[in-house]
Design a protein around this nucleic acid. Sequence first.
DNA 1: GTGGCTTTGTGAATGTGAGCACAAGCACAA
DNA 2: TTGTGCTTGTGCTCACATTCACAAAGCCAC
Lengths: 204, 204
Amino acid sequence: MKYHKIPDETIRRMPLYVRALALLEQEGQETISSRQLAERLRLNPPQIRKDLSYFGAFGTRGIGYPVISTARRIRAILRLDVPQKAVLVGAGRLGTAIAVYPGFSVFGLEIAAIIDNNPTKIGSRVGRLEIEHIAAAATLKARGIRLGLLAVPAEAAQGCADVLVQAGVKGLLNLAPCCLDVPKQVKVVSIDMAMALGVLPYYV
Amino acid sequence: MKYHKIPDETIRRMPLYVRALALLEQEGQETISSRQLAERLRLNPPQIRKDLSYFGAFGTRGIGYPVISTARRIRAILRLDVPQKAVLVGAGRLGTAIAVYPGFSVFGLEIAAIIDNNPTKIGSRVGRLEIEHIAAAATLKARGIRLGLLAVPAEAAQGCADVLVQAGVKGLLNLAPCCLDVPKQVKVVSIDMAMALGVLPYYV
DNA sequence: GTGGCTTTGTGAATGTGAGCACAAGCACAA
DNA sequence: TTGTGCTTGTGCTCACATTCACAAAGCCAC
């Protein structure tokens, strides 16, 4: 399949495959067919095959996909083969929950700094990280931090985003219930928990 | 526009409109045009008009949409006009962060119970709620709780989901990084923070 | 080898959503 | 009452995403 633009939806699913393959590797399974993988992830086999084929041939016909090397290739595609560092802004309850969340490491993602604007919190520790003042944003680029997570109230989110963008952050995960204005070369992904919960009553 | 199935994506955006309109009401604005609303939400005006028109005519040509009554009508469509109660499973860091999160109330959503399986936590308070044992799930239906949030480790999520479904919960917001098997009349929405962060390096 | 079984890779078809352009409609002023 | 300006509501078109169906390709047993 050549000269094909890769759908955003495909990219969105790739981390799913990475995590599933990492689990399979742990279980000692060497290969997996699109059917088995689809069963685990509640997807359709052709979708998985198509997704993977966008990046070239991964599998062996009659056998399936090699667990280890496929995981490695997807990680490389997503740039997750090198450790990616992120800064967390907001050391409130949600922020500290995220700071100690162990689920980022499968993807080679690491919360490498925590920033808050509350002077009483500066210097105290969350896990093995020390909470820093917002002025420390200036040092982010030098520390190789290019991703940011916003766990602040909606009113503060835009201001924090501006600071991070200024500091060279290229990707933002926004957990505040608001829109962000950023230069178009900065990618923003938003998670809005209340909105996600808010659609449920419609369906039930 | 008659005999039209309402797109899921439209439903997904509805809470966005509810929140924006609630804010406008607070600001004292009486009507808003699709253009103004689109500017706030970073959407296209025709998309907003189309979304709203799926449910009938809301606006006045030449003027725009009446803030208060439009908000009320959308709430009714989403069944957010009656208070909706939810049970939170998992009183860890993420769980307690969610428990005290004030952002649910715009939608008439309320965390009405917290459940954990850790005996040392039972009885202690988070906000004004007391942490209950998982056995208390049996009382959820009687208390009018039909929604559930899962803030537990991935290994525990399916078990908790089973318990909630058994207890009559009809909608689930899953925050654990895994798939859930539920009867098809139960709606599941999943939020996977690590996955959301994991796609960023690809784009930057 | 060769035949049979399994599974991939992919063009084509189908389904779903977004964006545009414009007619229809309302308010307000003259 | 009529004209002007603005905004909604919506059919149509295009783009994107999912699913299907099947040929191509590898493995294994004999």
